[in-house]
Design a protein around this nucleic acid. Sequence first.
DNA 1: AACTAGAATGTTGTCGGTAACATCGTTCTG
DNA 2: CAGAACGATGTTACCGACAACATTCTAGTT
Lengths: 349, 349
Amino acid sequence: MSTRADPSGSSGVETRAKAATIYDVAQAAGVSHQTVSRFLRGFEGIRPATRERVVQALDELGYRPNLTARSLKSGQSHRIGALAHEISQVGPGRIVEGASIAAREAGYVLDIVSLDTRNPRAIEESLALITQHDLAGVLALAVTDEMTKAFEATAFGVPSYVASESEGVEDDPRGLLSKVGIPTLVAHLAGLGHRRLVHVAGPSMWSASRNRTRAYEAAVESLNLESVGILHGDWSAASGYRAIADLSALPDATAYLVANDQMALGVMLALKERGLRIPQDVSVVGVDDIPEAAYLDPPLTTLSNDFEGQGRAAVAQLLARIERTVLTPVAVPPPSLIVRRSSGPAPVR
Amino acid sequence: MSTRADPSGSSGVETRAKAATIYDVAQAAGVSHQTVSRFLRGFEGIRPATRERVVQALDELGYRPNLTARSLKSGQSHRIGALAHEISQVGPGRIVEGASIAAREAGYVLDIVSLDTRNPRAIEESLALITQHDLAGVLALAVTDEMTKAFEATAFGVPSYVASESEGVEDDPRGLLSKVGIPTLVAHLAGLGHRRLVHVAGPSMWSASRNRTRAYEAAVESLNLESVGILHGDWSAASGYRAIADLSALPDATAYLVANDQMALGVMLALKERGLRIPQDVSVVGVDDIPEAAYLDPPLTTLSNDFEGQGRAAVAQLLARIERTVLTPVAVPPPSLIVRRSSGPAPVR
DNA sequence: AACTAGAATGTTGTCGGTAACATCGTTCTG
DNA sequence: CAGAACGATGTTACCGACAACATTCTAGTT
């Protein structure tokens, strides 16, 4: 039957250091390894008696498939490479988490390569690293332009998907937040009587940031409001604070639309330090609805953003390409307006 | 020579869909595949002329090693499995990021399996999944007791390391925050004249949380202060808020030591809603120094916590075991007290 | 009972590397 | 100058799974 001998010599002992292979199972069941393989792959035509023996041997030896071997032969692994920037940030972190969970549910593991922003060669190194580990597909999550560019220039030889908010494409779920959410947010402010707004944008390197800015501008225009300033931050609370604190004079606005909640937090503190009351004197709204948003002082009006859903959706997209199946649509709930106390009626002059 | 034929038939064209193997390189260089393999593994005894041809062929074909094949034979992969809870949380997220970057720098990829807290079988499934993908080692980051237990009960067959704050062990860098940081924090409050403190703890499932609580109790005792209450949260801002808001009457304390910054945020809002001023009426201090801490209202006194360093340190520990080398110590800066405006002198009765 | 189609199962080769062993040349020694 | 000794390179086997092809077995037909 099998040519493999038990190197330990002992047979009754259960303590085996090495994982059982299909050959071990085959020997134990008194069948060929191929029969075991067939069983594992769900082949139907196996006689009940044989099947029984295989099942039992499988169970006895505690067989676990060696995915490395499988992937070597079949050329397909059950790993998805994911490149992401700054996963410690709330947004990217939640996207990654959603992706990771979705991947696991589908029997895949997510190889996450986190890019070190301080290391300029990180992108290159990461791409090189990732191309060696043959993967079923590659995902770019939470990307900057630089990364998108490097990503698209790389021939992975496997399906890939960029989960950034794409710019031109219509009807793409990735742009939902900007296309649907931001207008709602602006309309909310307009409904409260605000006419002159300031936008605090994220870094222009991120397409997500540019989309939000563009959506803001379009909404302001269509509602006949006035944008009296666009400031820039880097998504952090510190940058939001600086954006306001560094101004020699505050713009003549009654509301601030900030591109994410963290920056909004900094903006609020800076405004308060200027002696303004929120929302009596100025309204501040954020985007993302981070868990802390409801507990800021004042609680922040913002836009819910289903990051986990985005991660899941990205994995679903990639899986559809990998497995050549029809895309199982992941319902990503549309962003919704969450009104809290940081926004209120525009002050009467 | 080689028995492999070029399936495309064309030879001049550079467009090959498949990655070049050492056999392709060998053929191009007119040597055996083993010579190529030897070169790649850094074997010295290769004639300069031969070496030259190999280098050139390697370069021409853009050879990239297939790590799957290598790991099948050699039994060692360049992947580290990492299990983590709630990586979207700031702390765990930053630990994972630090680990991911450290792993990449060492030429490893981190397979991150994020556990879905809502799915009770997630731990089990994840462990099963991770044991299949033969890994160089396994890391448990940001763990709960339940996970630690499951983790330790699993025979991975490869080195593993749990990066949680261990309880009994002395001189372990993992407990630094509690052992050094918390006493400093309590001493800071004592120095401001506070005598009666309240502690808002994290979930008791986390050893990190229990350590902080125990360190708090010990410090209170040694400084002759009084702990007038220990409340419990789940690390979230919401739970911090609830812990206070649900009380029918506030305890007679002048300072709150909260186990992390997010909860502190909620605690501060709840206290303010009770009409207390911070820090004039009560002081609140947190732990972790999340980036937002400096921009809360008032900015939060807290303890810095080098999460990334913890991640790097964990990877270093694991790599030392994997590669059987001496541990390259990762300098994790000790936690330091960051005094901001949320703590002030105890009010005079 | 002999024959045969088709189902069940076994055998061999393959994926891309690594390792052990085999072989071919050198150069050095006596 | 023969032969040893060693250095450089080639051959073959192997890791654990899958796939193609080969073979055996079973059951139905005449």
